[in-house]
Design a protein around this nucleic acid. Structure first.
Length: 209
DNA sequence: ACATTAAGTGATT
DNA sequence: AATCACTTAATGT
């Protein structure tokens, strides 16, 4: 398992000494599907790096309305958690395990040191920050400028990509909740997509063509 | 066979 | 695009 992480970290371009430090100082955390990792208002004490599985990152308001932002997949780090920790702030995000997942939790205290000590780590963090930022911008675009049917299609394609599978095992209600709309709307749009032969509908399952 | 949950649909705002 | 009200279909007990 930690071999898997090790090769991944080296692939990313981190030097051996740093990889060793990461391996020696983090801890493994296994999460089961649908387990919440963090909610707004909580404080993160470690930065998660995804070894396997995927995390779903969402925004959530006080009433429990939520909106899907992006997925974190194998090899990616939740760089956003750094900003909230460094400034001793509360999390602005909600993270849930989209599938069973293995995470490598790196204590925040070390992030600072490593950024100073290893230029490869600084680059890694800045790059992943950039990626998250880009995804957030995409999400703003899609919420502000796209119609619900385009948003839904984007959602389906995102999901397909993140799981490398054409099968999406979710109910219309779950999708509606993540996109912060109603089930009826999703059902109708999905039906339309099915007529356009972009997807196939089954109970609890959607097949992207 | 019956109850429960998911999905489909017309009508209205 | 949201909501209501209702139907139909799939699944669990």
């Amino acid at each position: 398992m930690s071999d898997q992480l090790k090769t991944r970290l080296i692939q990313i371009g981190l030097e051996q000494a740093l990889v060793d430090e990461i391996l020696n100082n983090g801890r493994l955390m296994k999460v089961r599907q649908d387990m919440p990792l963090i909610s707004p208002g909580m404080k993160a004490e470690a930065m998660p790096m995804v070894i396997s599985g995927t995390l779903r990152i969402m925004r959530e308001d006080e009433e429990g309305n939520e909106i899907f932002l992006y997925y974190l997949e194998g090899g990616e780090a939740c760089a956003m958690s750094i900003s909230c920790c460094m400034n001793n702030m509360m999390s602005q995000f909600k993270a849930v395990a989209e599938s069973d997942a293995e995470l490598w939790m790196v204590p925040m205290g070390l992030i600072d040191q490593w950024m100073a000590k290893y230029q490869s780590f600084r680059k890694f963090i800045i790059d992943s920050y950039q990626e998250r930022f880009d995804e957030l911008m995409q999400m703003i675009d899609s919420i502000a400028f796209m119609n619900m049917d385009e948003r839904l299609m984007k959602y389906l394609l995102d999901k397909k990509q993140s799981t490398a599978s054409f099968e999406i095992e979710k109910t219309h209600q779950q999708i509606a909740t993540e996109l912060n709309t109603s089930r009826v709307v999703i059902s109708r749009l999905l039906k339309k997509l099915e007529k356009e032969e972009k997807i196939e509908l089954h109970r609890n399952r959607i097949e992207v063509l």
